[in-house]
Design a protein around this nucleic acid. Structure first.
Lengths: 159, 159
DNA sequence: ATATTTTCAGAATTTCATTCCGGATATTTG
DNA sequence: CAAATATCCGGAATGAAATTCTGAAAATAT
């Protein structure tokens, strides 16, 4: 093992590459190579390896949430009536289908779920809540939080 | 205006393109063109327009959170002692710098902030909380929620 | 010290993004 | 309704970048 790698098999150059691609995957291999101090070919191989090992799990376009019609964010905390596997599975499937639902966390503590929702205004949220979320049978209780602002969103953590 | 566009100036073909790029921006313009029923050139122009108008705000690589060493997610709710602009600005800046902090929402209701944090195990979280978050002067109160699982994360909302 | 493995770089090739052009379609105007 | 105008489309040509191929250098192991 000629490189100095950490527990995950990543060396410093790998991390530099990831730091670049994390915020802009449209850089050419040449541009990346220049910035990390390599030539095209080994830089390209490293990227391929990072893809094959699944450290890079995909490449996506970021859409402006407001400009696609969802300027407002709410956080909904949810409790279900009961917690058998089937119910949880169904609720998860329900949430997957709702375009307003951005993130879903299954949580410990006071609530069972924390859900991030993107909508257009309070009206949009009311519609979402009454017509979509609460249409699911078995919700015991919810609490809604309005987000004044999103101060940070990292698509992937810093490496 | 020869196309049938909505309020945002997007027609059905634009939305199809966005739906594809939203989950995979490595598709070639030819592949996208095939799937939306266009030829390369007009498809490419549309993508350029979506970039120029800022509807597509960027392209990024998605890193596997667990594989880069942050398998565990916590949600921290935070209250500050006081809420003058400077304090809020400082706290925001503080959070921007912390690699564990993925998302930050400025919220109404019981807490001032809802923060999504990615760490390695309970030990990692304790370290983050004591050595980093609470090092900031002026935190009145926090509540931590452990996430058993992330059931959904859309980098961008469905269009 | 030598053999082996791994990483690197340069050049050639292939694939794709981008530009250029003319024709078709829809909208606007008279 | 017809002509003018703007918009969109597709095909071919060009340029740039990704990918492959080859051999040399560096690090590790024997």
């Amino acid at each position: 093992m000629p490189r100095t790698t950490d527990a995950k098999g990543l060396d410093d150059t790998d991390r530099k590459i990831l730091r670049l691609l994390r915020t802009n995957c449209r850089l050419t291999t040449q541009e990346i190579a220049d910035q990390v101090g390599l030539s095209q070919t080994p830089c390209w191989s490293r990227i391929k390896r990072l893809e094959e090992t699944g450290i890079i799990s995909g490449y996506v376009a970021i859409l402006d949430q407001a400009k696609v019609g969802r300027p407002d964010t709410f956080i909904v905390e949810v409790n279900l009536e009961n917690h058998d596997d089937e119910k949880i599975e169904n609720f998860s499937r329900h949430l997957q289908q709702l375009p307003e639902v951005i993130d879903v966390y299954l949580t410990t503590g006071e609530f069972d779920y924390v859900i991030i929702v993107a909508v257009d205004g309070p009206e949009g949220y009311e519609t979402f809540l009454r017509k979509k979320l609460l249409k699911f049978e078995g919700i015991k209780h919810t609490r809604s939080i309005y987000c004044l602002r999103r101060l940070k969103r990292d698509v992937s953590p810093m490496v």
